[in-house]
């Protein structure tokens, strides 16, 4: 048993902090230090919206489209999932790469198809 006095010393506190950081460094995945993955560049363009805007808002955009398509029956073909694949042929390199990096798991592709 280490006496309580030990834990109040300045050096011991520093060593605990050091140990904690060291453990975090060991445990953390190496991808944390690597540059964030880049989604594959579009093979043709332009996108249905500004690329910067899409990067930030594509999830809300898709959700909004989904309500419009399913519930109101207005399907804009050029803005559907199927159309994404026209410029971004690989789902793995375009969608999944980033989603995996930021650890989100949208379940779009449980049902929707992404033509190759």
């Amino acid at each position: 048993m280490i006496s309580p006095a030990f834990w109040s010393g300045r050096w011991s506190r520093a060593s605990v902090l050091f140990l904690f950081l060291f453990a975090a460094w060991i445990v953390a995945p190496s991808s944390l230090w690597a540059a964030p993955p880049q989604p594959e560049k579009a093979v043709r363009g332009p996108c249905v919206r500004d690329a910067e805007w899409m990067r930030r808002n594509h999830m809300d955009f898709l959700k909004h489209k989904r309500e419009e398509t399913v519930r109101e029956g207005v399907a804009v073909k050029s803005e559907s999932f199927l159309a994404c694949s026209g410029c971004h042929p690989s789902r793995e390199r375009f969608c999944d790469r980033c989603h995996a990096y930021v650890a989100v798991a949208p379940n779009c592709f449980e049902c929707h198809q992404y033509p190759k």
């Binding site: 249905v48 919206r49 029956g73 207005v74 399907a75 804009v76 073909k77 050029s78 803005e79």
Partner: peptide
């Protein structure tokens, strides 16, 4: 963006 009328299924 402008979409051609044929691309909307409504």
């Amino acid at each position: 963006p402008e979409t051609s009328p044929g691309s909307v299924a409504a």
